[in-house]
Simulated assay, not measured.
Amino acid sequence: MLFSSRCLLAPTLLSLFLAESTVADQAKSRAQTALSTLQDWYNSTSGLWDTCGWWNGANCMTTIADLAALDPSAMETATYVFNNTLIRAPASNPHPGPETKANNKRMALWGRSNAVNASQWLDSAYDDDGWWALAWIAAYDVTKKPAYLQLAEGIFSALTSAWGTQCGGGIPWNPTDKYVNAITNELFLSTAAHLANRVPSRKANYTTWAKREWDWFAAQGFIGDNGTINDGLLDNCKNNGDTVWSYNQGVVLGGLVELNKAAPNHTYLESAHHIAKAAIKTLADSNGVIHDSCESDNCAPDATQFKGIFMRNLVKLHKASPDDVYKRIIESSAKSIWENDRNSKNQLSVNWAGPFHQPVDASSHSSALDALVAAAAL
């Protein structure tokens, strides 16, 4: 009888395995197609993607790196983009840095000891700097090219000189405005934690910075009563109650996953789960598709990028600490994008629930590609 039960069980398990393999292969195929479409916007002269901005370019590059990490067929595109963007993109920097005199000295010292010039990637917005640091870390992860990691280190080195706000810690969003927002500080956390796990000789330094940022961030008013993260702080350092953007719920997840890897502490993943669950409750519709509140107005120019960033980091949390809720949200969003938010050119627009509508650009498309890549990573 026991033998018979095992014989019956084996085909069932095999069927489940084959079904999951088919879903994963389908997700990967869709991501490959979307990558090809994204590259229609890539400008080999500028090293960036036409129709979207400087910081969006960093996110386009990151999602390409994430796909290449899963799919060797994407490596040729990825390595070309990394190499070309490294050379070409600095000329398109809208506000070339470094942003402060302190950074001028710091970057001069950095440039003498490294082959890369991190100051070319500073643009007087500390959040933009963080996006590029994470993009170059992602490029390093799939190529192991030291220059990419050195570049990320240089950018982060510049960011540390901005530490200290009227709220007793953290960094402002740019050198000339004292506004303290969530995303800039989440990017600081995530960059420090990523570097801690990739630069053994300076692990202690980067881990200290990551812990310092998280301890300060968690003690501030960024996280609302329902567990979601608002946009930033008032001058009195209280939660400003501004929009619960999806990307603010996302970057922190990846940062906490990396920090937990660098310095294991069960509270880091507990905090990540708390934020992720609250975000899903707030941002997902009844079909499990993620939304931002601006979609009726097309979310231009910046928020077109936001949801993909959430998905990119949600899958990192799921891989580190699996949860069926996250799997459902990722699969539902990716499925809806492909079936309801795609035109005949395989372009992907801003409302993942559909229907597809213009305008569409490299930002909205690469954001949706993030969701497809997340589904392929499950």
Rank of each mutant, 00 (worst) to 15 (best):
S321D: 12
K345I: 09
G354F: 02
Y326A: 08
I329P: 00
N340G: 05
A334Q: 09
Q347I: 08
W338N: 01
I337N: 10
E339D: 12
L348F: 06
A320N: 05
L348W: 02
L348Y: 04
A320T: 02
D324R: 10
A353E: 05
I337V: 15
V350H: 02
A353V: 08
D323Y: 11
A320C: 06
E331K: 12
I330K: 07
R328W: 08
V350Y: 05
E331W: 13
N346R: 08
S336W: 03
I330Q: 01
S344I: 09
S321Q: 04
E331Y: 10
G354H: 07
S332P: 02
E339Q: 14
A353T: 06
A353R: 11
N343V: 09
N340Q: 13
I329K: 00
W352T: 00
S321G: 07
N340H: 12
Y326G: 02
W338T: 12
N343H: 10
N340L: 10
L348K: 05
N343Q: 06
Q347R: 07
G354S: 03
K345F: 10
S321C: 04
N343T: 13
I337G: 04
S321M: 07
K345S: 13
I329E: 00
N346M: 09
I330E: 00
I337K: 05
S336N: 14
I329G: 02
W352E: 04
D324Y: 13
G354I: 11
E339C: 06
I329Y: 00
S344L: 10
D324S: 14
S321I: 08
D341Y: 09
G354T: 10
I337C: 11
W352F: 14
A334V: 02
K345L: 11
N346Y: 13
Q347K: 11
A320L: 08
S321E: 12
S349L: 04
S321F: 14
I329R: 03
N343P: 04
K335D: 15
N346A: 13
V350D: 09
